[in-house]
Write a protein that binds this DNA or RNA. Structure first.
Lengths: 137, 137
DNA sequence: ATTTGTACTTGCAAAACGCAAGCAAATTTA
DNA sequence: TAAATTTGCTTGCGTTTTGCAAGTACAAAT
């Protein structure tokens, strides 16, 4: 897979060139929630991504420095995917998506309770969540 | 165009179902910068969206309550597209994308200067920009 | 030694994309 | 006032991407 050509110099456009498809942010979401995922973990998510699409997205996200692969401590057959610093820095963006969705649609109860926590102290939540994610890098 | 089926109840996934493709956020970007756009204005953007894709996205964004169409004051041949409140509320997200891009890539000079302003007072910038956008609704 | 688990790859049909051309109504120009 | 241009799309069609199912290679468990 060659490097995708960028459509313009616009930061929004360039960002979308990296993670602006239907699946990448869901992969990143899983990593933000679970901290570390195996290939199989991603497949378990509700959206049911196809295995070939998952493989392609993981490769592209890795090529773009958003995620990294590492050995699973328990087994040589497993692979651990994690967010890089660059990936972790997408957390504020992810939170804004949640806040927007919260304003215009009905969220599942578990998400709703986290959102309430975020709304009380957004900066504090981000700082804490980022530091949790950095622990496993 | 029928209503797109949602892949899960996840707020991230549902949001992506609405604007999570390669073009929608660029259309929204144009509207945030220009406040109001004609069909032709969108076509002028650097990324060179195809006319059929543009028409499809505008319809889908309108169906999802992100943008609205109105008559152009100068001409019956022209159409004015604007952001709705729901669309305007994507501004914080758009800003976070810019901040992320600023951190990990080189921005064009004009964007860079706005970003510096945003970094000084993010909340103030958002409040002001939102109110500017609401003026033309 | 055989079965199961894990991380992918491959084949193929269906859908989406992207380019070019076409079109109807409004507007401008001659 | 007739012709040309602008504007906002639509249509056809070849190319690319997606998505489902099946297959494969290696590790691990039985």
């Amino acid at each position: 897979m060659a490097t995708t050509k960028k459509r313009s110099e616009c930061p929004i456009s360039c960002s979308l060139d990296v993670w602006g498809d239907k699946w990448s942010l869901l992969i990143i979401r899983d990593l933000m929630i679970l901290k570390q995922c195996t290939y199989g973990d991603f497949l378990k998510s509700d959206e049911k991504i196809a295995t070939n699409i998952l493989a392609a997205r993981l490769l592209m996200l890795e090529e773009n420095g958003i995620i990294s692969k590492s050995n699973h401590p328990d087994s040589k057959a497993k692979v651990l995917y994690k967010l890089t610093l660059k990936g972790i820095d997408l957390l504020p963006l992810m939170i804004e998506i949640n806040l927007w969705a919260d304003k215009y649609s009905i969220l599942p109860a578990d998400r709703k309770s986290i959102l309430e926590e975020i709304k009380k102290d957004k900066e504090g939540f981000i700082k804490n969540a980022k530091s949790e994610l950095k622990k496993v890098i």
